[in-house]
Design a protein around this nucleic acid. Sequence first.
DNA 1: TCCCAACTATTACGCGACTGAATTATTCTT
DNA 2: AAGAATAATTCAGTCGCGTAATAGTTGGGA
Lengths: 297, 297
Amino acid sequence: MALNRLDLNLLHVFDTIYREGSLTRAARALHLTQPAVSHSLSRLREHFDDPLFSRQGNQMVPTPLARRFLESMRPGLTQIQSAVNQFHAFDPANQRKTYSLALRDILESTFLPKLMGRLESYPELEIISQRVPRRDMETLLAAGKLDFAVDVLLPVSNQTAHELLRRDRLVVLARKGHPLLSKGLTMDKYLEAKHVLVSSRSEGPGIEDFELSRFGVQRNIRLRCQHYYAACRVTEGTDLLLTMPENYARIIAERADIDIHTAPADLPAIDVHLYWHKAYEREPALIWFRDQLNSIA
Amino acid sequence: MALNRLDLNLLHVFDTIYREGSLTRAARALHLTQPAVSHSLSRLREHFDDPLFSRQGNQMVPTPLARRFLESMRPGLTQIQSAVNQFHAFDPANQRKTYSLALRDILESTFLPKLMGRLESYPELEIISQRVPRRDMETLLAAGKLDFAVDVLLPVSNQTAHELLRRDRLVVLARKGHPLLSKGLTMDKYLEAKHVLVSSRSEGPGIEDFELSRFGVQRNIRLRCQHYYAACRVTEGTDLLLTMPENYARIIAERADIDIHTAPADLPAIDVHLYWHKAYEREPALIWFRDQLNSIA
DNA sequence: TCCCAACTATTACGCGACTGAATTATTCTT
DNA sequence: AAGAATAATTCAGTCGCGTAATAGTTGGGA
């Protein structure tokens, strides 16, 4: 008996008949006609010289030999299917891939150094960090022109998935010897003081104010500017307070004559979220990248 | 991409190309022509949208993806092949099978009770014990009309396989109060005494004499008869000695007024062998049965 | 550099294996 | 007993697989 000539595709049919317990249902599951399945079973019966299934009413019941054979064979069949399905699984060490990220200025400063350090083992990967207007974020994600966006918690449609990457404690920067802060910073003193706000827009709340407004408080903003570096310079020479995420504050205050104060306890941390489009959620390369981002957050 | 439509038979070709490192050699191994293998590879390349192998001189070198895929898939392929090959592995608990044995009279008495006890758990098995002339043994084994023969060591062709089943000590039966044996049985006394020989033939050596003649000795046979039971009756009432295998002597002497003496040390044990034809050596059912015989021998 | 051997890829063709439509046979339910 | 559901079989057509032939590629030796 030439066992090596068995048509392996018949085993898939065998498995389906076994599972469905009916040729007609197996045919439906396989997108074939019932006679095609009956033929296939006939070939299997001939090959193995065994009926394999006996009709009992409207059920096809496997013979003991068939049952034993299937139990023996099925793990192998499952593994092959899995291997075939995984052929295009993402291999970051060997595949070229460009990732497009939308990162706000300060997040770029805190994320990119760590991310690039993380991806040092993957020379085939290219990262594009770009500034994306919030109103364009979802459109670009959906179009696949942008892989991920990193931002605070935003209202998004249910086509856009997101997850928390990290929570950024807020801190308050003030010049050394600031008269209000000799005995520590309270929420009253925080609201009494004047503030500098960093925002790319000429009006509207900043990140901090978005969080503050959730508690129904509003601070006295004396200055709006576009970059944290400039704001820091102003804070250094005035009595204005600058509120910002701690991660970035540590970077920026290193080179300034400035104190970092813990924010009043009522001032919440800022949630930093990762956004992507659900259409690409199962894309192996993107899943992998999400894991990398999570591991450095 | 319709992964479910992959022709699983192509995976066997893939495996062979990988192993041989050449389409031409793979074709030879698969008993196909080179273009047939080239076509199959072409189909795999199309399905996976990957070259899979690149020609480097006269070697087909797998791509990293192909390598990874094969490592992932091969255990599954091996398992399926093994399952298919094992389809007809013998399952004694569930398969009908008739075994045909050639057993000489006394071996039937010593083997069959134990064997049937052993096979009690296998109600689907049927045993036929038959008397087969020695000259017909090999012919019937070769034709598959006989599965096994159990006999002493016989000269057989190299188409017939055999193995030692057990060694049967010889004992000597004598009437109670036999005058020669008051002080024990020596070889001298054994050869001095008169003997009864049990044989189905009217002339030629018996089992014992076949063994004795290997040591160049010959005893004085006074009587030949066909059955041990009759011989025992004679021994019981005369001074003749009866030499026979111990296993059977214990059975037969139970009901007689007779002593069992240890045979002289020079008298060797009788080797009982199991014979079968080499053509059926790999037959699972026969392998299984041999194991059972070995376990009761 | 040229020639040859070894090997892969491609083209053309034929046949038989496989599939589906139609039909028959079998089993179960009411 | 009739009808529905299902398996098995027959028949016809198509297309996919394998072969023979050929073209293209690579490496080694003279």
